[in-house]
Every structure is written in structure tokens, then in C-alpha cells.
Design a protein around this nucleic acid. Structure first.
Lengths: 349, 349
DNA sequence: ATTGGCACTCGCACGGAATGAGTGCCAGGC
DNA sequence: GCCTGGCACTCATTCCGTGCGAGTGCCAAT
């Protein structure tokens, strides 16, 4: 791919095709874009581009359509970052401002993103793994039933019910609560586990030791175990919020080959998360085009995603999913902008 | 509608049409169902049914299709409750058994319902309004920043961040926490508000009173206000879980007129909740057919819903949404079964 | 009231022709 | 050597006309 003009032609094809949803021919190209050459010249370029696999013709007498490879080249080399307008920025900030809790923030981000891009938006809840513990609460719901509440720096709250064998007094609970909190408050989740284990057996009492203080120790151990389990519970890592599904209606044709598999993927959160890929923080937006992934059913859909989190640390991913024929520059800009504002909100909280 | 056989004919038409998705003619009818009469007779009945508005012919030489009115008669008078098989019962129980918290229960129910009915399933989270307060937790995240955690009998946890003007000591917090809990624990949400207000101003201190104890009073008032607000926050009543969207793919034709509006409605949770209607507990399943509701865009979709909640008290609704041409008996049975098991789970928790 | 018979209606599937957008290639010009 | 106008060619799509057949409505007979 040497020729400069050919790249322009490819860019023009992509832009036109995205806009019109129809194969674009040489004549229409030179008319709409100000390339200063004749259709015949463009045809030659198009032939070359087709030869190299960047575009393809659905049938002999139709215009050309970008291939996945073509889109790839387009996003990699032909995309100029299209910054958000001031109005858009204000809209984003305003929209996210009003959120009252983490749930709300995520929901609003999802809606925002889907409205900005007119695509399906996906926002993963911040991961537990890298956040820190803010507070642990122990509540006795019934004499032998405890509720553990784990409050994390990201604003996330995990809860666990715990049945214990012996009745627990309020004082025991209070001291245990204090102990646990001084041990784990502020710690990263991964480390918190260790701290908890040391609490659980301060003197390595055997399981069948006398009653006196072992009750408390047994209790501590049970609580510690439950907390550790809650922290390691990656099930909750899979929590995601999805919005803008109705934008799938604009997928135009190919309901069965495109929309249905996508709807199915949207239900399989694990698949979806794999699709969005590893969280790439720091403003880097990842683009997965068509069949580039392992899911061949999704050969007609693309994913534009990025990571977000306080302080440029990627706690989770967020992005949009749509047809390969999508407005990549616009989507990338929107995804990046929302990720940025979302990160800022998490920073403040 | 007097004639007995005519009803059978209508029933047969509905059943066949639901199964084949194609207009059903007189000949096919007598063949598939064991009505002991000739096609001509059936034709007469069909003419009568059409006259009365229960069925209609898409065009002159096609079979007949049930109208909304026809479906209505069908579900009202021609449906025999089809109980779940033992295997299905076991599957339901097993599937819901493994849930770890409320979120999980709701998610599982949604998935379950969508799989049983092969429709889009909608499950509303239990309402706050009629549940009781289990525990209120106050946590100082920072000297002037409090986190309120409100734990309800349904297992739901609401959180609120609260900025206060003055620093709060741990003791103050502890006494306040104790005070609040003795006041509201076990109370229905509606009553809890009153109890809180009395705490907030034990001696009706004026706002500009001396420092000494007013700090605590001001604090108490602020906390009480935040809690009351959290309790009255019906925004959270709108939380719903949606699953099985990919079943929309089986909507067959009419993407634009049927699927798109439905997808849009699914995003508008408020609309969706209105659609599902008032929670009707106690095993009563409501069916809304086609254009019976105020939303004419949804003239091709039906809703089968019911209420659920511990002890036959309807805390929330749950149901399925699908094409008017759906398996009503099956959907109704599934909805009722899931509601029943879900209620039982909430009972135990 | 039910039934067999029969003429009638229309939607739909099939096939051929016309249409026209778009291409590839070639020969001439800058 | 690259660009350009011209031209013959391709082929999906559209349109129309026809035939088919499912299904109906009606009527006369049982």
C-alpha cells in the first residue's frame, strides 16, 4: 500500500458506505468527495485495492464494499480523532453529574454511550480485584445469621449472608468488626485476604479446642472465609449493563445472520466481556472488526471498547457493539470521552 | 357466542396458528384436530366467527388468523391450565436453589423464565415500599462523609452517600446508629419514616441553637432525611431484569412494526412496568393482548404477567413479553410457576 | 344442521425481458 | 508513466404477465 491517493479512495469508500449503507461506485465517489481525478482513475485504484483485499464487490456490476481488512486499515491509519464538540462535552458531564450511586453511574453511562453512538452500549461494572476495601460491616439479622457488607473504594457494595452455628453477642460482633476493619481498611483486595487469614487464627487454635475463646475464633474464621470468598467472587466481575438494544433495528438487512447472533452474545455476558477484551486504560481505544475474534457468528459486528477506572487504572471495560459498517471515528471518540468522564467521576467518589 | 363447536373451532385455530405461524384453513383444521365434521361445516363456523370479530382473513384466499378479540376469548374461556411436569418443577427449583443473593435470584428467575417460555422475560426487583427495615448501618468513610446502608427484609440493600458539615466522632455515630436501629428495625418502610422524624428532633431544637448537642441533632436530622429519601426513592422501584431478548429473533417477519417498538419499550423501564400492570398476587396471571393497552406501537405484542412476593403479598411483577401469536397456556403456566417458586424463596430468606 | 360440489378470488411463485449502475479494458493525451 | 474518455459487457434488480392452488362462499341435497 504505497500510493497516497489510493488511501484517500479507501477512506472515501468507507465513509460513503457507512453513510449510505450501499456499495459505492467510482462515479459517485468522485462526485461526493473532491478527489480531483476522473472515475476511470478511481476505478484503477479500486481494482488495486480489491486486488490487495481491502475492498470487495458484492457482484460484478455493483459498487465496492470495504472488507474487514479495509476497515482495519481505515481505523489504523486513516482515522483522524474527531474531538467531541463543546456541547457534547457539556451534555456528557451534565448527564453523569446527577448520578446518586454506582449503579446509577453505570446505568447513565450506558444510556449516554448508546445515545451518542446510536449503537448498543456495554458498560462493565468496576472489577473488585484491584479496588481497595473501604469498610466491612457485620450485622446480626438473627441470633445465628449474620450479614456481611463489604464496601469498596469504587462504591461497590457486596453482601453475603452467613449462618453461624452459635449465637453471637453484640459485643463479640463489635470487637470482631473493629478488628477486621483495622486489618483490611484501605487494603487492596488481593492483600486483604492475607490480613484476614491472620485474624482468623491468632494463636492457631486447633479445631476442637475448649469452648472459652474458640467460639470467637471459629466465628472469626468463618467470617474471614466468607469475606475472602466474596472478594474472590469473580461472578460479580461479570456484571455489565447493556443499553441501546433498539439501535439494532438499524442493522437493516440480515436479521438472522447479524442481529440474532448479536442478541445471543449480549445475553452471554462472559462472551461479551471476552469480546470487549482486556481493559486498556489511558485513552487507548481497542477496535475489533468483524471476524477478527474467535466468534464467527459475529463476523458482521464490530466492537469499540476501552478501559476505565480512577487514575487511569483500568478497572473495567466499556464500549459499543455494532455492525462492521459503523462510524468508527465517531464511536471511538464517544467511547473515549465517556470512559474519561466516568473515570473522573470514580476519582472523585 | 353460543355454539359449543364454534368455540372448539376457535381454539383449534388459535392452537394451529400459534404452532404453524400460518393462516389456517378449514381443511387443515378438520384433519389435524379430531372435529368430527366436514370442512364445509367448519367454514360456516369460521364465517360466523369472523362475523363476530374473533378471527380474520389476511386476504380472500388465505386461511384465518385469530384477532386480539379471538385470543382474548381463548385465554379467558378456552384455556385449561397446563400444569408443569415434574421434571420442569424440579428444574425450576434446582435452578433457583443455587442463588446467593437477591440480585442472583432475580437474574436466575429471568433466565429461567425466558428459557421456559422462549420469550422475553421481565422480572421486577421487589419494591421497597412494602418491605420492612432489617438494619441501618452508618459508616464514616471520611471525617465528613457518611455512607448509609439500608438493609431490607427482601434482601435488598440501598446505599446513600451523605456529606455532613461537621466532623463526626465514632461514638456519636455509634449512638446514632443504635438509636436509629431500635427505632426502625422491623418497621414497614412507610412507618419507618415517621419514627425517624421523631428521632431527628427529640427536643425540637431551633436550627441556630448553641453548638453543644445540636451537632448531633443536626446530624441526626440529616441522616434521617437521607434515609427517608432513600426509602421513598421510587426510582429503584423501576429496577428490572430483562432476559431472552434473542428470542425476539423468532418474531419472524415484521421487524420494523413489531420487534423495533418492543426493543424500545424494553429500554423504557417505566413503560414496561406499566405494561405489566399492577402486581396481582396469589396465582392470578394477567394477560394483555395486542392493542389492549395504551401503546399502539405494541399492537403486535402480548404480555403475560403476575405478581410475586413472600406470603402471597405482591411486592413486584414478573412476566414475559412476546408476539400476540404466543403460546398463552404455556406462558401462563411458566409465569405462575416461576412466581410461585420465587415467592417461596423470598419467604425463606 | 350438515355436507358435497362447484365456481370464484387472489396471493404468490415462476419466468422472461427490460433496466441501468457499474465495471474492465483500451487507445489516446498530458 | 499516469490519467482520461469511450465503449462493450456483466449481472442484480425490477417489472410484468401467467399459471397454480389454497381457500372461500354459496347452494342444493340429505
Amino acid at each position: 500500500m504505497q500510493n497516497e491517493r489510493r488511501l484517500s479512495v479507501l477512506r472515501a469508500i468507507v465513509e460513503d458506505y457507512v453513510k449510505t449503507e450501499e456499495p459505492v461506485g467510482s462515479k459517485a465517489l468522485v462526485e461526493r468527495h473532491g478527489l480531483g481525478v476522473s472515475p476511470a482513475t478511481v476505478r484503477n485504484d479500486m481494482a488495486a485495492l480489491e486486488e490487495e483485499g481491502y475492498i470487495t464487490a458484492p457482484h460484478t456490476s455493483a459498487g465496492r464494499v470495504p472488507t474487514d481488512k479495509g476497515y482495519r486499515l481505515f481505523v489504523d491509519r486513516l482515522t483522524t480523532v474527531k474531538p467531541m464538540t463543546a456541547a457534547e462535552k457539556r451534555a456528557i458531564a451534565g448527564f453523569l453529574e446527577g448520578a446518586v450511586d454506582l449503579d446509577d453511574v453505570v446505568t447513565r453511562s450506558t444510556r449516554l454511550l448508546s445515545q451518542l453512538t446510536r449503537q448498543v452500549a456495554v458498560v462493565q461494572y468496576p472489577t473488585l480485584s484491584r479496588s481497595t476495601v473501604r469498610h466491612v460491616e457485620l450485622v446480626a439479622l438473627a441470633p445465628t445469621r449474620l450479614l456481611l457488607v463489604l464496601i469498596l473504594s469504587t462504591g461497590r457494595v457486596e453482601q453475603r449472608l452467613l449462618e453461624v452455628t452459635e449465637e453471637v453477642s453484640e459485643e463479640t460482633l463489635a470487637t470482631l468488626r473493629a478488628k477486621i476493619n483495622t486489618a483490611v481498611a484501605g487494603a487492596v483486595i488481593a492483600e486483604a485476604g492475607e490480613a484476614l487469614r491472620t485474624i482468623a487464627r491468632p494463636a492457631d487454635a486447633p479445631a476442637d479446642a475448649p469452648q472459652t475463646d474458640t467460639l470467637k475464633d471459629g466465628l472469626a474464621a468463618a467470617v474471614a472465609e466468607a469475606l475472602i470468598e466474596a472478594m474472590n467472587d469473580h461472578r460479580s466481575d461479570e456484571r455489565i449493563s447493556i443499553g441501546g438494544t433498539s439501535n439494532l433495528a438499524r442493522f437493516g438487512d440480515s436479521f438472522d445472520t447479524a442481529v440474532r447472533p448479536l442478541l445471543e452474545a449480549l445475553e452471554e455476558h462472559v462472551v461479551l466481556l471476552k469480546l470487549m477484551g482486556e481493559a486498556t486504560a489511558g485513552g487507548l481505544v481497542t477496535v475489533r472488526i468483524g471476524a477478527e475474534g474467535p466468534y464467527q457468528e459475529l463476523s458482521q459486528t464490530s466492537v469499540v471498547a476501552t478501559g476505565y477506572g480512577p487514575g487511569d487504572e483500568a478497572l473495567a471495560t466499556l464500549g459499543v457493539v455494532g455492525p462492521t459498517r459503523m462510524d468508527y471515528p465517531g464511536s471511538m471518540a464517544a467511547v473515549r470521552a465517556v470512559a474519561r468522564y466516568l473515570s473522573r467521576i470514580l476519582d472523585e467518589a
